[in-house]
Computed example of a mutant assay.
Amino acid sequence: MADTFASLIEAFKNMGVSKAYGAPVQVGGEEVIPVALVSFGFGGGGEAGPDGASGGGGGGMVLPLGVYRNVGGQVSFRPNTVMALFCLVPVISVVGAAVRKAIRAAKA
């Protein structure tokens, strides 16, 4: 079990900014750097009983947010439109709920 935990620690040391920003790539005469939202987690547990049951699990996700473009020294960010719309869904839902409550309160 200790070897497994040590290997998990080593694997997660490599996660972070290096996984959120990809290696620069030359595309059509311009340099692009892919950008992503990287999230991961894991957990485990055990029971101090006669059978000593234990378990664990983990998971992660990567959402491609867009790319940084470097054209002639000018750097700009170009978002992934589909992912931007996907990320706005919770914001729009909360604003819609707040407006609905405000209208109901104004009518009362």
Rank of each mutant, 00 (worst) to 15 (best):
I103S: 06
S93L: 09
L85I: 01
F42H: 12
S54G: 02
E47L: 08
Q74V: 13
V25L: 10
G73Y: 07
A105C: 05
R104D: 15
P90R: 02
P34E: 06
A2K: 13
N70I: 05
A98P: 08
L65T: 01
G49F: 15
I9A: 15
F40C: 07
E31C: 09
V32S: 05
F40H: 12
M15G: 10
E30I: 08
N14K: 15
R78Q: 14
A2S: 15
M83T: 01
C87Y: 01
V99Q: 03
G96D: 04
S18A: 13
M15E: 13
G73E: 12
V91L: 05
M83C: 04
R78S: 13
L88I: 00
V99P: 04
A53E: 04
V35Y: 05
N70M: 09
A84H: 02
E47S: 11
Q74P: 02
A36G: 06
M1G: 14
L63T: 05
N14I: 08
K13H: 11
F42W: 14
K101H: 15
F12G: 03
V35E: 02
L85D: 12
G22W: 06
S54K: 00
A97S: 15
F40E: 11
G66E: 08
G60V: 05
A20M: 02
G72W: 08
L65H: 05
L63F: 01
F42D: 05
G60L: 06
G28I: 04
V95I: 14
F86R: 02
A23H: 06
S18P: 02
N70C: 07
R104H: 14
S76I: 03
G60F: 10
V35Q: 08
R100V: 05
R78K: 13
P90V: 04
S7H: 11
S54T: 00
A105K: 13
A98Q: 13
M1L: 15
A23C: 10
L37T: 04
V27K: 14
V25H: 01
G57P: 02
P79Y: 01
N80Q: 04
G96E: 03
L85R: 04
G60T: 05
S18K: 10
P50E: 09
G66W: 00
F12E: 07
V94K: 08
V89Y: 02
V75I: 14
A84F: 04
V35N: 00
P79V: 07
A11K: 12
F40I: 08
G46V: 04
N80R: 02
A108S: 11
A48V: 06
A97N: 12
G46Y: 10
A36T: 05
G59D: 04
G57W: 07
V67L: 00
L8Q: 07
E31Q: 10
G16E: 04
Y68Q: 09
P90D: 00
R104T: 15
R69C: 01
D51N: 15
A11T: 13
Y21F: 15
A106H: 10
S18Y: 01
F86V: 10
V38D: 00
P79A: 00
M61V: 11
G59C: 01
E10V: 12
P34H: 07
P34R: 01
K101Y: 14
V38K: 05
F77E: 04
G58S: 06
A108V: 14
G72Q: 12
P64H: 01
G56A: 07
F42I: 06
P79C: 07
I92S: 01
V91H: 05
V35D: 01
M61N: 12
V89G: 01
A11L: 13
F12M: 10
V67P: 03
R69I: 09
